[in-house]
């Protein structure tokens, strides 16, 4: 069980590497540049890791993407939720 944090865009090499590494019990948090995934609700990773993948709301707001994420009904967490997620996973890896 692991938490994966992605900081780069969905089409980055960091993202491709991460997608190959995510296990069935793992969760994914998209932060910084990775929140541009909100623009692509058809991204295969949304369905693959349904209910275990989240966008960081503060970073969506900073990039003007919050309302798009809401319109696309994508799952979001705030900073407090980010910490709560790290409480559940002893192993945490950042892809960058």
């Amino acid at each position: 069980m692991m938490l994966h944090i992605l900081t780069k865009t969905p089409d980055s090499s960091a993202s491709i590497e991460m997608q190959q590494a995510v296990g069935e019990q793992d969760s994914v948090l998209l932060i910084e540049e990775a929140v541009s995934a909100a623009l692509d609700p058809a991204w295969a990773v949304w369905e693959q890791h349904q209910s275990r993948i989240f966008l960081l709301s503060e970073d969506l707001i900073a990039r003007g993407l919050a309302s798009i994420a809401v319109d696309n009904e994508l799952p979001m967490l705030d900073m407090d939720g980010f910490v709560a997620l790290t409480e559940q996973y002893a192993k945490i890896v950042t892809w960058y």
Partner: peptide, 25 residues
């Protein structure tokens, strides 16, 4: 691992640090 004003990493880390403390860790 990121520099201020060229990478968002330090600001993310700082905000995360405050959230850690706010949750009692």
């Amino acid at each position: 691992m990121g520099a201020p004003y060229s990478s968002p990493a330090p600001h993310s880390a700082l905000r995360f640090a405050h959230a850690i403390i706010a949750r009692g860790h």
